[in-house]
Each structure stands twice: as C-alpha cells, then as structure tokens.
Simulated scan of single mutants.
Amino acid sequence: MKVLVSGGTGLVGRYIVEELLAEGYAVSVGGRHQPEPGLFSKPVGFVPLRLDPNENQAHAFDDAYFFIHAGFSHVPGRYRGGEGDDPATFQRLNLDGSVKLFETAQRSGIRRCLFLSSRAVYGDRAAGEVLREDTEAGPNTLYGRVKLDAEHALSALNAPGFTVASLRLTGVYGDLRPNKWTDLFANYLAGKPVPSRAGTEVHGRDVGQAIRMMLEAETSRIADGVFNVSDLLTETHEILSILQKVTGSPHALPARAPLNVVSRMDTTRIEALGWRGGGRALLEATVEGLARGLHTPSAREAQHLSRPG
C-alpha cells in the first residue's frame, strides 16, 4: 500500500519513511523540494506539497492509501518559538494549512490519516507529574496551541472510511545526519560551555515503528485516538558522558540536571499496540555511533578552540 508522508525529508519524517520502506511499503514524500539523491535507502516517490490553505492539492493524494502528516513550517532549528517574528504566518501555514490537507485527504479517499503532534500540547506541568492522553491540555506556546488545534480539527473529520489519530511526540533523537545533537557535540568537543538540561526523548526509529503499528492496527484500536510517544528521561551530562567515553575528550562534563523536575509521559496506550522504546541501550548505541563519525580535536586543537575570541 502506498503511503504519502508530508515532511518526509525532515529530521523526524526521514525515520518514518525509512521504517515504512524497510517493511515493504511504497512511499511518496510530499514537500517543497525533491529529496536529494541517496537520501533514502530505497527509492521513494515525490509530490510537490505545501502548507498553504489557499491551494488545491488533491493531486498529491493520487493512489495513496495512507497519509502521515509530519510537515511543519518553522524557523530553522526551532519548534517552540518557531514562529520567529511572524506568528500570523506560522499559524496560517501550520494550522490552516494542515487542516486543508486533512480535508483534502478525506475527500481524496485516504483511508487512514496520522498527525505528528507534540508533548507541547500539555504545556509546562508540575514537577514529576505523569502526562496521560486524558490529562487536560494547557499549551503555553504558540507551537503547542497550533498542534492542539490541529489535533481537534483532525478529530472532527474522523468517520467510517477515514480513520484519524494523533501522536504526541516528545523530543526525537536519532542516528541520521543532520542530527539534533550536532551542535551540542561540537561545542562540547571544542571545550565550549554547554547547558545542563533534562528532558524526555524517543528515538526516531521508534517513532517510525509507532507509525507503522498504527497503520497496521485494527481501526477500532486507534480511531480518533491520541497517543503519547516517549521513551526515556535523560539529561545533557548522561548524553555527553557517552560521547566522552568514545572520544576520550579531556573536557569536563556539565553538571547533572535534575530529573525530578520533568513530567514523564505515560505510554500505556501506544504500548498496547505492541510498541516498545529502545531505552538506554539504544541511546548509548546511538551516541556511540555518532561519536565514531566525528572528528575529535587533538589536545592542541581543543586548547585553541576553547580560547575566547
């Protein structure tokens, strides 16, 4: 069956595409630009697709059976605060544009539509609170509000023959390049100060597996549902300690960030479909793999790079 993935060349979308390709799905990537040659492990189709509520893009859904909406417009490198100095356009593209795609997918005969939402819909919570899908949402950023409003709009379209669901993702890390930790690793290896930060994470390949399982699950188990997707609670010190072990970097690690201030996400609902995250074993293997692909500065280079100015 053919799957259309909007934003399939993005940091998260690529993991979804690779998982589907590995499992034998035909995949088309929807986006503004055609994928670079060799970006994916197997051939994919491409259809021009934009987050523009004024465009009729029914052609993009030709022959597709499933639609995964992973596309999102934002200031490069930023999600929260990704509106920059233009919140109106941010909302028009990511909310109005997404709703238009949902409606077009339904009219075009798509059978199942999955939306990549975010834990940002919960907003800032009390320290140690467990976030469940029925926890009252309280986004305190435009990013979180747009994601929540898009969830609600998609839910309103759920109907026989058009099954919808949203996945609330935590921070997504992984082994593909470019990588979310590229700058963090580079700054640490150069001896520059790095912040101490704790947060919840999930591997991109585990996100891909969650998507695939929801495509293959019985309709009654996912219809009009919301699913938390999160794996482990970690912090900068732990991540960089793995990097340090592999590279032998002489630089001091940042202080440990407290973990008890972070709200964990309950994943019972997605686990009921058979999903399991890779845990710390996957985190360690991923950081070790990324570390081996880095150029580690020599002691002389490190001393030079750490000098001010």
Rank of each mutant, 00 (worst) to 15 (best):
L20W: 06
E151W: 07
M1C: 05
V202Q: 02
V99P: 10
T219K: 10
A150K: 05
E288C: 00
H251S: 12
S298D: 14
H69C: 02
H295R: 10
Q91K: 14
L259E: 08
N158F: 10
G278L: 03
T267S: 08
G293A: 08
L282V: 10
T135F: 10
E238W: 09
F162W: 12
V261H: 14
V75S: 08
L290E: 00
L39R: 12
N260I: 07
R212Q: 00
V194L: 08
F115C: 01
H237L: 12
G31H: 04
Q244V: 01
P250D: 13
L95K: 08
G171M: 11
F102N: 07
G82V: 03
V47Q: 04
C113G: 02
A88H: 05
S306A: 15
L215Q: 11
T268M: 12
N56E: 14
V262L: 10
L49F: 01
D206N: 03
T170A: 12
F102V: 14
P195I: 02
P308F: 09
F102E: 00
L167D: 07
P308T: 12
E235C: 06
E201H: 11
S118C: 04
A153L: 11
Y173K: 03
R300G: 13
G278C: 02
Y79C: 06
P254E: 11
P76K: 02
P297G: 00
E201A: 09
E216V: 08
E218Q: 10
G225E: 01
Q106L: 14
L4W: 07
N228L: 01
E36S: 09
G161F: 14
A64P: 02
S241P: 12
P76T: 05
A70I: 01
S28Q: 03
P258Q: 10
L294M: 15
V44H: 13
G24S: 06
F185T: 01
V146G: 04
H69N: 01
A22V: 01
H59N: 13
G71M: 01
P254A: 01
G274S: 06
A291Q: 03
T170F: 11
A210L: 06
R32H: 10
Y143F: 08
H203V: 03
L21Y: 05
V202C: 04
G109S: 04
V261I: 15
K42G: 12
E288F: 03
E23L: 05
G84T: 09
L148R: 02
A285E: 12
L20S: 09
N94K: 09
R300Q: 13
T267F: 11
S118D: 09
A217I: 04
L283G: 04
R125K: 04
V287Q: 08
L283R: 00
G109A: 14
L176T: 00
N260S: 15
Y15V: 04
E235T: 01
R269V: 07
Y65C: 11
E235Q: 14
A137R: 13
T182V: 08
L305Y: 09
N158S: 15
L21G: 03
R269G: 06
V29W: 01
F227Y: 11
W181L: 00
